[in-house]
Amino acid sequence: MTRGQTYNFAYLDEQTKRMIRRAILKAVAIPGYQVPFASREMPMPYGWGTGGVQVTASVLGHDDVLKVIDQGADDTTNAVSIRKFFQKTAGVETTTETANASVIQTRHRIPEEELRADQILVYQVPIPEPLRFLEPRETETRTMHALEEYGLMHVKLYEDISRHGHIATTYAYPVRVNARYIMDPSPIPKFDNPKMHRMAALQLFGAGREKRIYAIPPYTQVHSLDFEDHPFEVQQWDQACAICGAEVSFLDEIITDDAGGRMFVCSDTDFCNKRSGSTAA
């Protein structure tokens, strides 16, 4: 290979993509199970979404329309950077409109707009193992998953309630997929958890540094862990979005001055733009 030769479509070579697609197929077949895969080194740092990028690169075709969001917004720097990466290496069409996208790569959010069966949502995952902070050893957590030994997970929730009166996990809130595997939904706010349940779109999760891929097939049951008398609940705001007036969306807090002034606006910029009728800039 001569230097400077152009890269393959969507950066990764075809063998690598095949390997990743095999891992994805296995992940879809065993919902919520973490499939090890030979994660490649990517030109962006670990923690910047190397897992998501590899999954996207492997599912992307020439006709796809790609949307990339970070914190719900298309315009955050990392989202811009990843979108540019695929524009450059795959030349696919990109969009900021949720409804127009066939593949959506995301960090930390699920779009407010309901996704369809012809869409794929790709999550960037930092730590795929939901039991990791309770048990640091991979050998042990693997056994716990295999034997469905999930008591420890509820011990943590119990401790939250006994100490704070609430389950104090607000993001990366663990879920049980298809009544079997406990899964980390990536650091999305728990506000987004209910959207995963029976979602029409295929949900793929890529963790590059930890070399794991997992998936939730369309219309799969996703249950956020809780107690019967302390049911799972999502965040609520007293305010509506200051721009579009939405009362059903996840709101970002904006500090407007140094005298305590603040306002709340939609974290999902496309959703907000559509509602307020402004054109995407």
Binding site: P45, P189, K190, F250
Partner: peptide
């Protein structure tokens, strides 16, 4: 791997932080 994950703390975490604030 190490530098990526340590330095990724520079990336925005607005949404997660907002969730903590709310709680």
């Amino acid at each position: 791997q190490a530098t990526g994950f340590v330095e990724h703390l520079k990336l925005p975490h607005y949404v997660d932080f907002q969730s903590e604030l709310e709680l």
